[in-house]
Amino acid sequence: MIEIKNLCKSFDGFQALTDLNLHVREGSIYGLIGVNGSGKTTLIRHLTGILRADSGSVVIDGEDAYNNINIKKRLGYIPDELFFFGSYSLKEMAKFYKGMYPTWNQARCDAMTEDFGLSGRGKLSRFSKGMQKQAQFILTMSCMPDFLILDEPIDGLDPIVRRKVWNYVVEDVSERNMTVLVSSHNLKEMEGICDSIGILSGGQMKIERDLDELKSDIHKVQTAFAHPDDADKAFADLDIMHRDKNGSVEHIIVRGNGEMVENSIRAYNPLIFDMLPLTLEEVFIYEMGGENHDIHEILA
């Protein structure tokens, strides 16, 4: 369990994080979404024990994360900007990681190196950015972390490798109950991977939701009635988040149990009734106040 409470951090007068709260359940994948400069990396650097909070708390498994060797032993981190010792190969870096992490799994490292098709002896500095990301992923996953923190992990990876990366992550989550926090500026990337999503903007947590709950709770309905008054009657008892009309066709975003919503509308015999799928982006748009909200800027 990762828990951040009222985290504040400022740099030279610039408030990078403000009263930020975050909760990641054990064995879940948490997607941290935000545009560049929203504070994702700063937040992650607090989680990995690199930065000290001005105020608030960053707690992992009940312990303060800052400078905590016990937490760091169980934590794997893939930063946005990678770092390898100059002129080192993957094999040499693996030796270093082996010395640093008591849970190092050499067999997994060898297997993953082969799976990703990387050379263990080639200089990492000569690898492409994508290959370096894969190498870092192999190193981090071979540490068998209980907590995995990924900062923009799939940037520069091709779709096949991306799928491989997510497979490994999901496998460890399901098999070892690993807890994952992954940051991205792209909400669509997180759809289908994450259990929970937090949206960060201007150093503040705008919204934090469980995805299954969220998606089953918000519905997009397209409907039309013979009498315009019927629409108002049908929607009267519903929690409408957004409503617009195109000719005689009504589009509503409604919160609540899907069956109940359908029953309420069908009770007025609509000419058309369709329950349409919602993208994660749409869910968040309406969750945060509709299309007029600046969520487009937040989600880029």
Binding site: I69, F83, M100
Partner: peptide, 18 residues
Amino acid sequence: HSSNSAGVMHSMPCTRMS
């Protein structure tokens, strides 16, 4: 003296003292 290396090294299982 580089933010990349400082980040990685300080996220590893060692305290600042070590």
